[in-house]
Design a protein around this nucleic acid. Structure first.
Length: 209
DNA sequence: ACATTAAGTGATT
DNA sequence: AATCACTTAATGT
């Protein structure tokens, strides 16, 4: 496996060796659910390819997107849960066909103490998400749905490395926990401002977004 | 040609 | 910003 290749820059040799010996390779098809809310976490995922969507659902089953996990990244929530064996607060679904490494959480203590690069990797992913979550809390607190939408579109574009997004208004509405009508209106406004073009199930982003 | 699903819009709260 | 009610447009069978 090319584990070594992907992590040579970040992880020390001993850690790469440990990864090769102790982690389990796992592949997931697009749409597969990897973690449900309430489920106990036993394995730490490290994404090799593809992408995972991490979200939260409220009592009525509405879904709120928290973040995506891209190759080379792990899940911050996992780290915060696994130290004390708390159940997961979030749901993770494979957004595309993905490949990941699974590390038993029993190795956490040992690795944190032994491998400096592991410790900083863990801290970095937690810190990164924490800051990101703070930002979105700000957005929600100030109720600027239009900005949230723009942010969402940019994020989507970055994640797919394309300015043509294949997505319906309904889908966006669900991820931002609003109604489709509202999204349609905001998108229309952005279209009038020449920031994007709308088609059925497609949105073309223009550079001035 | 018809049914279904996505998107656009005015009016109301 | 949400909901309703209705229209129009695109797509599938």
């Amino acid at each position: 496996m090319n584990i070594t290749e992907q992590f040579r820059d970040y992880f020390e040799p001993g850690l790469i060796e440990a990864l090769e010996q102790k982690s389990v390779f796992h592949s997931a098809a697009a749409g597969d659910t990897l973690m449900e809310i309430g489920q106990t976490i036993r394995l730490i995922p490290i994404l090799l390819s593809g992408s995972l969507k991490v979200s939260r659902t409220d009592e009525e089953g509405r879904e709120l997107l928290l973040y995506y996990i891209n190759p080379g990244e792990s899940c911050a929530m996992t780290f915060t849960c696994c130290m004390q064996q708390y159940p997961s607060e979030v749901k993770a679904v494979a957004e595309e066909d993905s490949e990941l490494l699974l590390v038993p959480i029993t190795l956490m203590d040992e690795w944190m103490a032994t491998f400096n690069t592991w410790k900083s990797y863990v801290m970095k992913t937690i810190r990164g998400r924490f800051i990101e979550l703070l930002k979105t809390i700000d957005q929600i607190a100030f109720q600027k749905l239009d900005e949230r939408l723009v942010h969402y579109l940019k994020e989507k574009s970055r994640a797919t490395a394309s300015t043509l997004l294949h997505i319906s208004h309904e889908h966006i509405a669900q991820e931002l926990a609003t109604s489709r009508v509202v999204i349609s209106r905001l998108l229309k406004k952005l279209e009038n401002e020449k920031k994007l073009l709308l088609y059925r199930n497609q949105i073309k982003l223009l550079r001035e977004l």
